[in-house]
Simulated assay, not measured.
Amino acid sequence: MTTAARPGLRRVEQVMGTAISLDLADDLPTATLHALADEAFDWLREVDARFSTYRPESEVSRFGRGELSFAGASADLRGVLERCAELWRDTDGFFDAYATGGLDPSGYVKGWSAQVASDRLLAAGAANHCLNAGGDIRVRGRSAAGRPWRIGVRHPWDAGATCLVLTGTDLAVATSGVYERGHHVLDPRRGEPARGLRSVTVVGADLGVADAYATAAVAMGPAGVAWLDRLADHTHAVVTDDGRLLHSTALPLTD
């Protein structure tokens, strides 16, 4: 007996220096699914070209060197800079696009770009999808199996394991951690790598904001836990450097 193929499409590409996966779970024509995936990845590559701090010719690099004025920047760059300024205020300066001395909005851009891609997919009729941009994840609707999406949060000491699993049909999940690059997130007040929190996961409705909040909490160190507790409309999970797992009671955990 044969089993009918599940609807949808899965694609993985290397963009922004990381593997980005897209799962489209709607029962749409194959050509339509491939066109939607093409548009999503074209957008992410456009963002990479414009916002990469590793490319001297990128727009963000030229702006950082003073070769491009704010008025002469693209609408996307102006919007990102304005949002970063707002997030700097919202986090009491702990999310700082200038923390390293030069302009680097990466702590917002990856989540923001994935959120925009997800919004466009939804508007185009792909109501059921999962976009995973290197650990920044936006899910909507249900998987091809008809169930809510399950999102594993990587165990900070074991790359092959998860420390918890989330589930939902409309979630933005961003994780900032030190398990791959060490303590690389700077405390902007001291100008030194922050310590105390090994992994911070923030769950909300907007992936760019969740991404920035997760980065800010890591930068705060242990004080970031109390700050996360005060956030409205967001839940979180934190793994401390000494191995404690702390999380919001309302975190959408799998039963």
Results as ranks from 00 to 15, higher is better:
15 V>P: 04
165 V>A: 12
156 P>Y: 03
72 G>N: 14
135 G>C: 00
242 D>E: 13
218 V>D: 00
153 V>N: 06
32 T>S: 13
215 T>E: 13
233 D>V: 00
88 W>H: 15
177 G>H: 12
59 E>G: 11
138 R>P: 00
188 P>R: 15
23 D>M: 06
163 C>L: 08
53 T>W: 06
168 G>N: 05
163 C>W: 14
6 R>H: 04
241 D>T: 14
78 R>F: 02
37 A>I: 00
78 R>C: 10
125 G>E: 11
54 Y>P: 00
13 E>T: 04
14 Q>A: 13
227 W>H: 09
56 P>I: 15
173 V>R: 02
37 A>H: 02
28 L>E: 04
20 I>N: 05
159 A>C: 06
37 A>Q: 06
144 A>M: 07
228 L>Q: 08
203 V>H: 00
57 E>G: 07
227 W>S: 03
51 F>V: 05
99 A>S: 12
41 F>Q: 11
23 D>W: 04
217 A>L: 08
166 L>K: 05
241 D>S: 13
58 S>A: 13
187 D>Q: 05
72 G>D: 14
158 D>C: 06
184 H>Q: 00
212 A>W: 13
158 D>K: 12
48 D>Q: 11
67 E>F: 00
185 V>R: 07
126 A>H: 04
245 L>W: 08
147 R>M: 14
165 V>E: 15
238 V>N: 12
249 T>M: 06
63 F>D: 01
146 G>I: 12
233 D>L: 03
243 G>W: 05
163 C>E: 06
121 L>N: 04
110 K>H: 11
33 L>K: 01
102 G>K: 14
39 E>A: 14
237 A>H: 00
251 L>M: 09
124 A>P: 04
214 A>H: 02
127 A>H: 15
204 G>Y: 12
17 G>D: 01
72 G>M: 02
16 M>L: 12
4 A>M: 09
196 G>L: 01
